[in-house]
Amino acid sequence: MARMQEHTIPRIVSVALIPAILVFGFYVQFHGEISPGGGFQAGVIIASAVILYGLIFDVNAAKQVVPPAFCRILSGSGVLLYGGTGLISIFKGGEFLNYSLLLDHGGQHLGLVLIELGVLLTVASVMVLIFYAFNSRNG
């Protein structure tokens, strides 16, 4: 099988596509609370940009951009961000994830943005990690 780098059209198209995918991922993320989408979908879209890069330009190139260790740390951080948001409301004397206590006004909004960000980090990094893990099987 010919290596992907030798295919000119996918290479050039993906160079054009990857930034667009990333931007679209963030669009889905930041409009998540008012339109369809959110952290999970955005995470998958952003991860797909990295995966596309890995498929076209070799996985090692992708690993230089997004190292596996970085992904591992990011995957834990997302959970911590989500849970930490919940813990703040516990420290303020409310129930876990009671966003109303985060701010006097707009706490619900802030809380939602924070946990969606947590979801984004974890989903995107875990997706990329799964891609790396599958790839490492080929040796």
Partner: peptide
């Protein structure tokens, strides 16, 4: 807390 604490520390260990 009995649910969240192990969950969060699990994440902390990966970091």
């Amino acid at each position: 807390l009995a649910i969240v604490v192990p969950l969060l520390f699990a994440a902390l260990i990966t970091i």
